[in-house]
């Protein structure tokens, strides 16, 4: 039902998204300068770290390494887009806002379904469809719980996470399910213009999502729903429809990420739930790149790539990988702390 509505809204959408508001903003000037400083500061921090790697990590700047990082970031990136969409549509309140804790477990389940289907001898198309159906079904379960039953997203997706993780374990008996198929071979070893298919997947997927979220009326309404549900409702936007869509979309992202994960390892492996925190970090870290400090697709992509480059740089510098998590955490704190300082005291809670 969402698909048809979505299509019609996309068709109806104008090219530009921002409404032409021209109110005086004298009072906000100081704050706006602060926000700009934060965004520049965050970007400067990221750039500084990359420059450091470029100077001191051997091979960091090579195009091969660059593509390698993009390729490695594909799975995290696709998941982070799903999470970002949910946060955009549900608002970023800590306990009541939109969040999808089930996304990583859902990816594991989709990967398991996909790999099991391939192993059972089904062709690529059937297996892909089964994986996507599985991801969207889990997303639909989230949507029913959050929108239909009114359960807090944090709580509903937590329960669904358990269900998905358990289903994956039951299906695979906690083992590695190997899989080979023409599609997987193409994803792993195919390349176009010297860029591998996996990297292309991330690039194309981000472009599609970028246009969809930031250049269509539907995307704008999604922000309205997340930013102020009552106002959105008063303006005639169907809040339940838009919020449901975000959960279905994050289910779809989980399925796509699951297929990519199977292709990377030629198998579905247990333990995908561990990605959840990185996904959250990427989606939330992305907010510092936006003018209004909300999740954006571009910002999410930048932070995903940054996390990828961080791990890669440490590897090239021969620093123990145990540092990566800690540095990632410290950077999140640094960036967010600076951000909240610039937001001013009244926005601190």
């Amino acid at each position: 039902m969402t698909a048809t509505t979505m299509k019609s809204t996309v068709k109806a959408a104008g090219a530009g998204a921002a409404p032409g508001e021209k109110q005086p903003r004298v009072q906000n000037t100081g704050k706006r300068i602060g926000t700009v400083a934060v965004r520049l500061g965050a970007i400067a921090t990221f750039t500084l770290i990359l420059v450091y790697f470029a100077l001191f990590a051997p091979g960091f700047l090579s195009s091969f390494n660059f593509i390698n990082v993009v390729e490695q970031s594909a799975i995290l990136g696709v998941l982070a887009f799903g999470m970002a969409a949910v946060i955009i549509g549900g608002g970023s309140n800590v306990t009541e806002g939109g969040i999808d804790l089930s996304i990583a477990a859902n990816m594991g389940l989709c990967a398991a379904v996909f790999a099991t289907m391939l192993q059972a001898g089904y062709p690529d198309t059937v297996a892909v469809l089964a994986g996507i159906a599985c991801g969207v079904a889990v997303g639909a379960l989230n949507a029913v719980a959050v929108v239909g039953l009114g359960i807090l997203p944090l709580l509903a997706t937590l329960a669904v996470m358990n269900i998905a993780a358990g289903a994956e374990l039951t299906l695979t008996q906690n083992t590695v399910v190997g899989a080979t198929s023409p599609l997987l071979a193409f994803l792993v070893s195919g390349s176009f213009l010297g860029i591998s298919t996996l990297a292309w997947c991330l690039i194309l997927f981000s472009l599609v999502i970028l246009v969809f979220i930031h250049k269509t009326a539907f995307g704008l309404r999604l922000y309205a729903v997340g930013g102020h549900p009552e106002a959105a409702r008063a303006a005639g936007i169907s809040v339940p429809l838009h919020v449901s869509f975000t959960y279905l979309f994050s289910g779809l992202c989980a399925a796509i990420a699951g297929i990519l994960a199977v292709s990377r390892l030629s198998a579905s492996t247990p333990g995908s739930g561990e990605m959840l925190l990185s996904v959250l970090a990427a989606a939330l870290l992305g907010t510092v790149f936006s003018r209004r400090l909300v999740p954006t697709i571009g910002g999410t992509l930048l932070s995903v790539l940054f996390i990828g480059f961080l791990a890669n740089g440490f590897q090239l510098l021969n620093v123990s990988s145990y540092w990566v998590n800690g540095v990632q955490g410290a950077l999140i704190l640094l960036v967010v702390a600076v951000t909240s300082f610039a937001r001013g005291p009244e926005a601190s809670r």
């Binding site: 800590v94 925190l277 959250l280 970090a281 939330l284 145990y322 540092w323 990566v324 998590n325 800690g326 540095v327 990632q328 955490g329 410290a330 999140i332 704190l333 967010v336 702390a337 909240s340 300082f341 937001r343 601190s348």
Partner: peptide, 17 residues
């Protein structure tokens, strides 16, 4: 003034390292 969710998420990462 970091939001509790992000602050404790950061601490979780640092603690794991």
């Amino acid at each position: 003034k970091i939001s509790p969710f992000l602050a404790t998420l950061g601490v979780l990462f640092i603690g794991q390292s």
